[in-house]
């Protein structure tokens, strides 16, 4: 920290710094996001790069999403059964599992899993490109680095996240079925009819909107952290990349949960 703004020397300046700095950062993240959003649509379109990124963010996360989806559904089935059986309403298990997954856990857990798998990779890859002057090299070739590196990732995330969320939800519902019906003996027909009767389009759309917002939050924050690795105040070079990757994962995870709460209040 600067000498002039250390808390003991000048508390007012430190306070100001504590307020101004995050606001400034939020502003630059917003500008960064809008730039990369606009550049997605700039001619010529970067189809092949977007598809590559969809493969990386979406396709390669499939296994992880299926696994976490299955086990989340299974544990929900287990926990739900024991809670519901206290009220003698085991039949509602299908509804409980499906609504929890579609409205809440599906989008959030998908986002968190993708942060761990693809978000950290984005931050690290772009960060290394920054410290090894590859981003400068792009600039000298008059290639817009945001368009070249960030826009395809943003577009791919916006396409992949809802699809991954949908897969997570579906696998999760079957996971709940596996424990509820296969293990604990609920009638399969009742499980699925409850799912069908309780879930309405609004729930599905709510989950869809959430996953869209999470896609934007995750890809923007992770790319932003990588892109500005060289401005990390505490470390440079390899240390800087490690710091950016860490903060990319931490900040985007927290922001996903914050955004989830805000969105839920609006959607309910």
């Amino acid at each position: 920290m600067n000498q002039e703004t250390s808390i003991s020397r000048n508390p007012v300046a430190a306070l100001g710094r504590m307020v101004i700095f995050p606001v400034q950062k939020m502003g630059s993240v917003a500008i960064f996001f809008f730039k990369s959003l606009i550049l997605i649509f700039s001619y010529p379109f970067q189809f092949s790069k977007i598809i590559q990124q969809i493969y990386f963010i979406g396709m390669k996360s499939l296994l992880v999403i299926c696994l976490t989806g299955a086990f989340t559904g299974m544990v929900l089935g287990l926990q739900g059964y024991y809670t519901l059986s206290q009220f003698g309403s085991e039949g509602l298990l299908g509804a409980a599992v499906a609504l929890t997954l579609i409205r809440e856990l599906g989008p959030v857990l998908t986002a968190i899993m993708v942060i761990g798998r693809a978000g950290s990779a984005m931050a690290a890859e772009i960060g290394i490109m920054r410290i090894s002057e590859q981003i400068d090299a792009l600039e000298t070739m008059d290639i817009n680095p945001i368009r070249f590196l960030v826009s395809p990732r943003l577009a791919a995330a916006v396409i992949s996240f809802p699809l991954l969320t949908a897969i997570f939800d579906t696998v999760g519902i079957f996971g709940g079925y596996l424990t509820g019906s296969g293990l604990l003996g609920i009638n399969p027909g009742i499980y699925f009819s409850r799912v069908e009767s309780s879930v309405i389009m609004q729930d599905v759309m709510g989950g869809f909107y959430k996953s869209l917002v999470f896609a934007i939050v995750v890809s923007t924050i992770c790319c932003f952290q990588g892109y500005y690795t060289h401005l990390q105040s505490e470390g440079f070079g390899a240390k800087g990349v490690s710091l950016s990757t860490t903060s990319a994962v931490v900040i985007s995870s927290v922001m996903v949960l914050v955004a989830d709460y805000v969105l839920t209040t609006f959607l309910l």
């Binding site: 590859q134 400068d136 000298t140 070739m141 290639i143």
Partner: peptide, 29 residues
């Protein structure tokens, strides 16, 4: 477009092959 810059550390794109590296400025611009 008139300028080219050769970096001290080469600054090659390490996720691309040699020919992709050389082709990049032509492909993009």
């Amino acid at each position: 477009q008139k300028f080219s810059y050769m970096f001290q550390g080469s600054a090659l794109f390490d996720s691309m092959t040699v020919s992709e590296n050389i082709a990049l400025p032509l492909k993009e611009k």
